[in-house]
Design a protein around this nucleic acid. Structure first.
Length: 282
DNA sequence: ATCCAGGAAAACG
DNA sequence: CGTTTTCATGGA
């Protein structure tokens, strides 16, 4: 068992961070422990005040994964631009954006479209059970998230069993398109935000919303401002009153919202988005 | 039954 | 070209 002692000015809430809906592979047991599969390892972790206790990963890994190396204060100060976001931020104190594994994050948000969080979670875990590697941890069985080749070259096991619906070909096509993961990750990482966004949207099943989530949650491109039905409602009601349609979200409406947010909240608008989403204040 | 959920692709005019 | 329709799944 390892421990990290957070400094008293270092804001971090494990529950807010793992429970806000940015990541789909963690469960909590009710007695304070969270269990999750990250990369090739199963991690258990809990927070008691300023103490993080965990097993299955090193101190540097946990620090990196939860972005504990980032000083939140200036970021929070920069997005705290109005009373509404201020309430959301107070409600979700300690929420941090995770550095998710990029390939898994990509597939996760391809699986997220027109769906809800419990369904997304089920899809990811089913893909892992079908194609991932088995890990036994404390007597229980977990599965790693598979490499692209494991999905495309599935011997008999097929994606169609994963209940992805119309997303099945998207996942397969994208897994086929990503040959070398390292190379793909480095290419996107090296690009500025808008170029990386356009590049991601070339992949099957990746539109504006999925691209923004992937850039925000896996590539630390904090200018991303993903607009889903919740964020759209919030922005319409509290920020852009003139945008009051209830029809399907159009491309130009998405762009108006994200560009407004980029102006209003600044270069860390992605952090603002996650606080607004997590608080989900009507 | 109908609507909804961290939308995107295909079809349409 | 921008706009509308379709898509598969399960919970409410």
């Amino acid at each position: 068992m390892h421990t990290i002692t957070l400094s008293h000015i270092q804001q971090f809430s494990l529950d807010q961070t793992l429970g806000c809906g940015q990541v789909f592979r963690w469960d909590h047991t009710g007695d304070g422990w969270w269990y999750g599969v990250v990369g090739m390892q199963v991690i258990k972790i809990r927070q008691d005040g300023q103490q993080l206790a965990f097993d299955g990963a090193s101190v540097p890994f946990i620090t990196e994964y939860f972005s504990l190396d980032i000083d939140l204060q200036p970021i929070l100060a920069s997005i705290d631009r109005d009373p509404f976001i201020d309430i959301a931020m107070r409600q979700c104190t300690g929420l941090r954006l995770i550095r998710q594994p990029k390939w898994e994050c990509l597939i996760s948000y391809i699986c997220s479209t027109n769906s809800n969080i419990p369904m997304i979670r089920r899809r990811i875990s089913t893909i892992a059970e079908q194609f991932g590697r088995e890990i036994i941890f404390e007597g229980k069985t977990y599965f790693t998230f598979p490499e692209p080749s494991a999905i495309t070259c599935s011997g008999g096991k097929t994606l169609a069993d994963c209940k992805l619906g119309y997303r099945t070909p998207y996942v397969f096509n994208t897994a086929s398109a990503i040959g070398n993961i390292k190379q793909w990750e480095e290419t996107i990482s090296a690009m500025p935000f808008e170029a990386a966004r356009r590049e991601l949207m070339k992949l099957s099943g990746v539109g504006p919303k999925a691209a923004d989530c992937i850039l925000l949650f896996a590539f630390q491109k904090y200018e991303a401002f993903p607009v889903d039905v919740w964020i759209r409602r919030i922005m319409q009601q509290h920020y852009i009153r003139t945008l009051n349609t209830n029809a399907a979200l159009t491309g130009w409406e998405y762009d108006i919202i994200r560009r407004f947010a980029r102006e209003h909240f600044g270069e860390y608008c992605g952090y603002a988005q996650e606080y607004l989403y997590a608080a989900r204040l009507g």
